[in-house]
């Protein structure tokens, strides 16, 4: 049984269930060029048939290199992109069935997002107070200036800022403080699910530690569920319960963090783990796998990883592997299915 085929029971415990999610982008040349030069329409399959579920209070991370589609998944879930196919269920409610802003508002209130770039995610012309109060006003959660004032002060305190910081403008803050403001805004509408799109990749390490600690504390205190998007495996290791490794719009492997990091199965996961610098082994000489991520516009046939894979055979070049159950999750690899996978050296 694959994840994609897993039946959605009526008493589904998952906070969020993504089923066969697809998002294609039309990257064709302009209409006139297509007509005059006889070029075909071109689709970029940024996300191609992704399924996963996140249990309440847990963190699921999506990792992968740039262009693998992880941010597109995040943007589909929060409604910035309309999916080209598949479904997104929030506590069993299919988001696609909610038409119009009014119908979506109750779900949107509970599902917020933290963005990557703390310098672009806050409107430079707004005071911090108004930035954080925006969701409260938009969802009409509180009435009256006094009540909103108290709530914003509380939120600022929750993320480690002072109430008087609300009077300032974003440019008066450092990157880490801005990310705290961004978190306060995301928390303002009392959400229980946060999509975090590379929340620390623009920050310095010492500040990254502050933000990661804050996010973990908030998760514990408020019972938040996280979808965490990152390219940094050590951050993902620190944050996640479940990890999905994405490659060219598809999930290569999705397993519990403990299983995936101790015994990675997909050759791509192994490659990624191999690239993590190990501070314990100074000057380690590594033999990194050659090659680069191919263009997602014309992905390789069969398993899209086969041109870089040391285990690729004829079947890998021809037939696309589906996710198959394995220890602690699922992996999409013919070599694993056929038992051709050499044991992981670290295990």
């Amino acid at each position: 049984m694959t994840i994609a085929a897993a039946p959605t029971t009526p008493h589904d415990s998952a906070k969020l269930r993504v089923h066969g999610l697809k998002r294609y982008f039309d990257v064709s040349a302009p209409w006139l060029n297509r007509v005059l030069e006889g070029r075909k329409r071109q689709l970029l399959k940024a996300v191609d048939d992704i399924s996963f579920a996140i249990e309440p209070g847990k963190t699921l991370s999506l990792v992968g290199e740039s262009g693998c589609g992880k941010s597109t998944v995040a943007r589909c879930i929060v409604g910035l992109y309309r999916p080209s196919g598949g479904s997104i269920d929030f506590e069993g409610v299919d988001l696609a069935t909610l038409r119009g802003r009014a119908a979506q508002a109750p779900i949107r209130r509970r599902m917020q997002m933290i963005f990557q770039d703390p310098f672009a995610s806050l409107n430079p012309r707004w005071r911090v107070f108004d930035i954080i109060a925006e969701p409260i006003r938009a969802f009409r959660l509180l009435r009256g200036a006094g009540a909103i004032q108290r709530r914003v002060d509380e939120l600022l305190g929750q993320v480690g800022l002072a109430a008087r910081d609300g009077e300032k403008y974003p440019h008066e803050f450092s990157g880490g403080q801005r990310q705290r403001i961004s978190i306060a805004r995301a928390l303002a509408s009392n959400p229980d699910f946060l999509v975090c799109d590379e929340p620390t990749s623009a920050l310095d390490v010492s500040v990254q530690a502050q933000i990661l600690n804050l996010m973990k504390e908030l998760q514990r205190e408020l019972g938040l569920t996280y979808l965490f998007i990152s390219h940094d495996l050590s951050v993902v290791y620190h944050m996640s319960d479940t990890v999905g490794v994405m490659y060219l719009g598809r999930l290569a492997e999705i397993r519990s963090a403990a299983d995936l990091f101790s015994e990675p199965q997909h050759p791509y996961t192994r490659l990624l783990l191999e690239t993590i610098p190990d501070l314990d082994v100074i000057g380690r000489h590594r033999e990194p796998l050659a090659g680069e991520v191919p263009s997602p516009i014309n992905p390789p046939s069969g398993c899209t990883f086969h041109p870089r894979c040391p285990l690729a055979n004829e079947r890998c070049r021809a037939e696309r592997p589906e996710l198959q159950p394995t220890a602690g999750g699922f992996v999409a690899c013919h070599a694993v299915a056929e038992g051709r996978l050499p044991p992981h050296p670290a295990s």
């Binding site: 450092s174 990157g175 880490g176 403080q177 310095d204 390490v205 010492s206 500040v207 990254q208 530690a209 502050q210 990661l212 600690n213 973990k216 495996l233 050590s234 951050v235 290791y237 620190h238 990091f261 783990l273 993590i276 190990d278 501070l279 314990d280």
Partner: peptide
């Protein structure tokens, strides 16, 4: 403050404040 794979900690060492 650098998270390390293999050493699971609930809380990273953090230096408060910013440069």
């Amino acid at each position: 403050s650098i998270p390390a794979v293999g050493h699971h900690v609930e809380r990273l060492t953090q230096i408060d404040g910013a440069m």
